[in-house]
Amino acid sequence: MSEAVSPEDREVVARQLGRPPRALVGVAHRCPCGQPDVVQTAPRLEDGTPFPTVYYLTCPRASAAASRLESAGLMKQWQADLATDPELAAAYTAAHEAFLATRDAVDVLPTRASAGGMPDRVKCLHALAAHSLAAGPGVNPVGDRALEGMGEWWTAGPCAAAQDGSDA
C-alpha cells in the first residue's frame, strides 16, 4: 500500500529523476535512509496516455544496481529459468496478477500487459525490483532475485541531497 506523497517527497523524487515526476500517486517504498526509492504511478499519465508501470524505481543508486544486473545478462538467464522451472513460472504469473490487481484498483487499462515483461518475459529488472520493494518479499520471485543481486545500494546514505546541499 502506498503512502501519501508529501511536498518534500515530490521534491526528492524530482531530484532523483532529474525531472518532475509524472502521474505520481504515492510512495510505495522507502529506502532505509528514509527517502522514497519506489513510487506508485497512475495507470494513465496526466494527458490520458496509458502508463502501465505502476511501480517506478526512483533511487538512482538502486537503478544503477539494477542496470548492472541487466548488463551482466541476468535477464536472459532468468528468462531461461522461467522456461524450465514451473514453480518459478507460476509464481511469476501470480506476481503479474497481483500487479494488475493493484493497477486495476486505480484505473483499468485496455491492456493486460504489465511491468518488466510479466508474466512471460523478463524484460526490465528496474520495474521488477520496484514491484518487489513495493509488494514485499515473496510476491515477485524475479524481482526478489534482482533485489538480492543489487546489494545494499543505500549504505552511502541518501541519494538525493536537499536543495540547500545537505542530505535530505
Rank of each mutant, 00 (worst) to 15 (best):
E3N: 02
A4N: 07
A4E: 07
S6A: 10
P7K: 11
P7V: 15
E11N: 10
V12K: 02
V13S: 00
G18W: 08
R19K: 15
R19E: 13
P20V: 11
P20E: 13
P20F: 09
P20C: 08
P21V: 00
R22V: 06
R22T: 06
L24W: 00
L24R: 00
V25Y: 02
V27A: 05
H29A: 14
R30I: 06
R30S: 07
C31I: 09
P32Y: 06
P32H: 10
C33H: 10
Q35P: 04
P36K: 09
D37A: 12
V38R: 02
V39L: 05
V39I: 12
Q40D: 04
T41D: 01
L45E: 10
E46S: 12
E46T: 04
D47M: 09
G48R: 08
T49S: 07
P50N: 05
F51K: 03
T53P: 04
T53C: 12
T53W: 11
Y55V: 11
Y56D: 00
Y56K: 01
L57V: 05
T58Q: 07
R61D: 11
A62P: 08
S63G: 12
A65N: 03
A66N: 04
S67K: 12
R68G: 14
E70F: 03
G73L: 06
L74M: 15
M75A: 13
Q77H: 14
Q77I: 11
W78D: 01
L82T: 04
T84N: 15
D85A: 07
P86S: 06
P86Q: 05
L88P: 03
A89L: 13
A90D: 13
A90S: 14
Y92S: 02
Y92V: 01
Y92A: 01
T93E: 11
H96M: 10
E97C: 07
A98H: 07
A98T: 10
A98P: 02
F99H: 04
L100Y: 07
T102N: 09
T102K: 11
D104V: 03
V106C: 05
P110F: 08
P110G: 08
T111M: 12
A113M: 13
G116S: 10
G116V: 04
G117I: 03
G117S: 09
M118T: 09
P119I: 00
P119A: 02
D120N: 13
K123I: 03
K123E: 07
A129D: 01
A129W: 00
S132C: 00
A134W: 02
A134L: 06
V139T: 08
V139H: 00
P141V: 03
P141M: 05
V142N: 00
V142K: 00
G143V: 03
R145K: 14
E148S: 09
E148F: 07
G151Y: 10
W154R: 13
T155K: 15
P158C: 15
C159G: 02
A160N: 12
A161P: 10
A162C: 06
Q163S: 06
Q163Y: 04
Q163G: 07
D164W: 09
G165Y: 11
S166G: 15
D167I: 10
